[in-house]
Computed example of a mutant assay.
Amino acid sequence: MLYSGKSKLELCRRLGNDWLDLATCLDIPAHRRNQFQQGRECYAILEWLEERNERLQKLPEALKDIEREDLLLVFEGEKTPQLQQYSDDDGGIHPFKQNAFPHLLCYLPDRKPQKEALKEAIKAYRAQYADKKQRPLLCLIHGNENEYGHFIKCLLEDFLLNDNALSESFRGGRLEIELLLEEFHTVDKLPQEILAFLENKINAKPEKEAIANKLARERRPIIIPVHILTNDLEEWQDDQKTIIEGFIEFWADWPKKVYAQHQLFLVFLSFSYEGGKNHFSVFKNWFRWKRKANHSVLRKQFETLNQKYPTIMDFFENQHVHAKVLPKLESVKRMQACNWVSTHEEQIKHFWLDTDALKEKVKALYEKRDAIPMDDLARELKQLLTQPNQ
């Protein structure tokens, strides 16, 4: 099985940090993975497969195993998957492309307020400086835990790639480095923890200037996401400084003289609150009170930041870092869900031909609800598209 250069390029642009899961699933030995060039791991995987002709055919199955069925559509024009058809009670016929469901599709109902705020922040960030120096743009994201719905992945895989004003920056791919939460312990230790993590990821000295110079040589967008749950704040927060302040201070002190050719450098700091229920009955009331206290403090911090620093330059003048608090992630309303059908009609028709009938099904989901949390809605939308008879 052979794939075109265009398909390979699109696959590698979209695979992101999932390359390690893919390599593991394909049984690529650790010593070979360690030889992969930073940022070109996906290309190295394809080369390894092509060296073993019989293994290239394992790529689609491996993508399914790592739950990246959405990437199967990259090869759609080269080998057309067979369609299975289902009919439902209202007589509609719905083709379902077996084993090729795009895993982000049902998480794409409107997040316009957040997208527009991010877009304006990036435009302001670019317009402010013409000196081509590297400067991180810190994007603060917050909302209930069940509203996240792969929000960062949706930004990276859909919005930023498809927006007319922003897609130009991503034509050469991106370097995505996810900061893992288990590496962090206290606010005071946060700077050293981040530097040590980046040192390990990009093979540079644990110093800001060395890391900044190594990232600048990438000459493509740098994306650093980190996600923090409210329940973690109890361990990380101290009496003198909040975790948010710790992150802001770290990036405010980033080297200002590193030449990076207008490199887009986005740091997504995501906080979610209202975590899952605690099952230890003896401490149940105490934990509930503690979570509510953390949620309240966190929301108040974001509200204060929004009021004090409405633009990235207001933020910079006070905190010496370019930052933007995006609007809170809210539950999805009926009109937004119906608009999702229209906006993504081309993709949806692979699974449901009559999109007008689908809109009626979506409206029925809202019979007793004004809005639905994103995670719940995505689960129900996927069930509609993949199991139309139920």
Results as ranks from 00 to 15, higher is better:
Gly143Leu: 11
Ala124Ser: 15
Ser87Asp: 09
Lys119Asp: 09
Ala165Arg: 13
Leu118Phe: 11
Cys154Lys: 10
Glu51Gly: 04
Tyr125Trp: 15
Leu118Cys: 04
Asn99Ile: 06
Gln85Leu: 14
Gln57Pro: 03
Tyr148Asn: 13
Arg135Cys: 03
Lys64Asp: 09
Trp48Lys: 11
Phe159Arg: 00
Ala127Ile: 08
Asp163Glu: 15
His142Cys: 04
Leu118Tyr: 01
Ala124Ile: 00
Cys106Lys: 06
Gly77Pro: 04
Asp163Trp: 06
Pro60Met: 02
Pro81Gly: 09
Lys79His: 14
Leu137Phe: 08
Leu63Val: 10
Arg52Ala: 08
Leu63Pro: 05
Lys58Ala: 12
Phe159Gly: 05
Gln98Trp: 11
Glu168Thr: 14
Glu157Gly: 04
Asn162Tyr: 06
Leu156Asp: 04
Cys139Thr: 14
Tyr107Asn: 09
Lys64Asn: 10
Lys123Gly: 03
Asn164Val: 05
Leu166Lys: 11
Asn99Tyr: 10
Tyr86Cys: 09
Pro109Met: 02
Pro60Phe: 00
Arg68Tyr: 07
Glu116Asn: 08
Phe159Glu: 03
Leu104Ser: 07
Arg111Asp: 02
Asn99Ala: 13
Phe96Trp: 07
Arg111Thr: 00
Ile141Thr: 07
Tyr125Thr: 01
Ala62Ser: 10
Leu63Trp: 07
Arg52Ile: 07
Arg68Pro: 11
Leu63Ser: 02
Cys139Val: 15
Leu104Gln: 11
Tyr107Cys: 00
Pro136Arg: 10
Lys123Cys: 02
Asp65Tyr: 07
Glu51Phe: 11
Asp88Ala: 04
Asp89Thr: 03
Leu49Tyr: 02
Lys79Val: 11
Leu49Lys: 08
Ile66Gln: 10
Glu120Met: 13
Glu145Lys: 15
Glu67Tyr: 01
Tyr86Met: 13
Phe151Lys: 05
Ile45Cys: 02
Gln98Ser: 15
Glu78Arg: 12
Asn99Thr: 12
Gln128Tyr: 13
Lys132His: 03
Lys115Ala: 09
Leu156Gln: 11
Ala62Leu: 06
Glu157Asp: 04
Ala127Ser: 14
Cys154Val: 15
Lys115Leu: 05
Phe159Pro: 03
Lys133Asp: 02
Phe159Ala: 08
Lys153Gly: 01
Phe151Arg: 10
Glu116Asp: 15
His103Trp: 05
